[in-house]
Design a binder for these strands. Sequence first.
DNA 1: AGTCAAAATGTCAGCGCTGTCAATCAGCCT
DNA 2: AGGCTGATTGACAGCGCTGACATTTTGACT
Lengths: 350, 350
Amino acid sequence: MRRAAAPGRGSATIEVVAGQAGVSPKTVSRVINNERGVRAETRERVLTAIQQLDYQPNLAARGLAGDRSFLIGLFYDQPGDYLSEFQTGAVQRCREANLHLMVEPLEAASPHVGRDLSTLIRQLRLEGVILLPPLSDLPAVQAILAAADIPAVHIAPMHAQDDAPSVDTDDRAAVRQLTAELLQRGHRRIGFMLGRAGHRATEQRYLGFADAMHANGLDIDPQLVQAGNFEFAEGLECARRMLGCHPRPTAIFASNDDMAAAAVSAARQMSLALPRQLSVVGFDDAPVATMVWPQLTTVRQPVREIGRVAAELISQYQPHRQGWPRPVPRRHLPLELVLRGSIAPAPRNS
Amino acid sequence: MRRAAAPGRGSATIEVVAGQAGVSPKTVSRVINNERGVRAETRERVLTAIQQLDYQPNLAARGLAGDRSFLIGLFYDQPGDYLSEFQTGAVQRCREANLHLMVEPLEAASPHVGRDLSTLIRQLRLEGVILLPPLSDLPAVQAILAAADIPAVHIAPMHAQDDAPSVDTDDRAAVRQLTAELLQRGHRRIGFMLGRAGHRATEQRYLGFADAMHANGLDIDPQLVQAGNFEFAEGLECARRMLGCHPRPTAIFASNDDMAAAAVSAARQMSLALPRQLSVVGFDDAPVATMVWPQLTTVRQPVREIGRVAAELISQYQPHRQGWPRPVPRRHLPLELVLRGSIAPAPRNS
DNA sequence: AGTCAAAATGTCAGCGCTGTCAATCAGCCT
DNA sequence: AGGCTGATTGACAGCGCTGACATTTTGACT
């Protein structure tokens, strides 16, 4: 009982290609999979046939026969610009490796994270996963990953796992440097807005701030350190509280641009002249950074590049050998300081 | 030659489930695929076995045998908030339908759009595609789609295809209403900032503006209609040019929030008091809408919902019957006007 | 109880590819 | 020429599931 092949739909099978090239299907398979042991001339013939017939190997069949899926999963908790930039980079790299990316939301706060992740991994037979923060640090997620025995790359994890590669940026150093810029301009009372708890970025950015302050023998006024959770609205309240302190801070360092924009907004509502009476620094170089006036001094993350590197790491995993290359790869991508109009020398009278 | 099943990895096969339930594999298959003609009691037994064994059907095998892929493609040109919200909605709906979403970038400007799309469709054997603007209006894309014979849903297409469903929102009416709000507040000279050419939104939003103006017997000053391409930077220049006109417009309607934020910014730089001297309206209810002061009056799009509906339409396609239900579904989702502080009565002296 | 259509279930081949292993070939040595 | 080794290539089964069709069961009605 031979089912009729849908005409037009799909392309030739490997047998047709084999016929055209005058070899066996297995040899075509060898060529497709880039295996060694095919004479150059044969390979050429096969390649030509593939081109002529515009042959596309059937993923499902390859997967079934070879016990693979050619799929890697990208899991996120929060949609947004970061995600879409990241995935664009990751997809680019995947295409080069003939893999495909499944992008899936996963609620970090849900009690079912683990189960959901596990279902997806097993249903799709994922060959690897990439975890965006804060997913990489959830114990439930780690448990599943450990059991699943597939390569996982963590993006900016709070606590790097011994056996899992990670990609991150040196947020701490960047904030340290930018804080130093403020100090150098004479600022001494500097407010700091924290991000969302559970993110590496939140911790590292604060540490960078603390580094710079302590390096200059300055103490940090606890009143001037507030959690804005990466949100504009909360940043607004933080800023108001900070700006209500006496003496007023002359600068505010926000852990992301949304909150920095909030600081600008709050200051404006209090009729402060920016940047003369208040300097503001953000992080991310988000679109809003150039939409507020004065434009935000901030830090640019190479998000697309991070995505690309993450996908690249996945393909470095050796399934049937020892797993990850040793030492387990950790990639630290450079950040770029972006100095714009939102910082100025501290006012004299403060 | 029986290859050893990887222990632990993957789950039981359909045969194991069949054994446990005391039925044939085919019956298990029927249950999995929700086919009719299985006695309730039998179905129950099978379901129990599936649960006990934590069985996950093998997608590749199902695909190969049934000539399906369970995959639908979402193609985009521009990453960003819109995309990531949209895909989150689409994935949600897909999960309910036991489908999976492949999100793939596709350069609208590239000469290879058609070929790239075709490759992806055939390589992944996509069962359907969703096209984000402006991809749906590219002739190259349409040609491929026509040839591919798979369901395609167009999001906010400029020219709805007769045979392809679409999802959009009534931007025209929303802009008309919001323009009416301005007119009602006494504004007569109103600037309008156009979006990027090739987008339905660009056209519709302008038409809504024109509707309202004409309905009130007002002419549109061509000097006050400028293309900002949805970009903040370009919006800034548009705004400056408009605000340099005599007499100055008392309100600016921007086709998106980024440009509206630019208008706010430009006005501020010219020391205009907002909203007293200039009212500003945007579109999208983007994050920036609540980050500028005064907060933007704008229009909220139910982006996640649009994604969900798009995925839902795909699954309404009847592959082996007549294709799309007739008439071809067109879903128009409601927009929500968001009135915020950025509009005020027109100044008296203008 | 016997008949018969409809409902429920089973049998079996094969989807398009790859793993295993066997067969063939080319090149080199004696 | 014959023998041997390693490089290429091929034969074939089977991955886990579903389509087509065969068979069995059910139950409604004589």
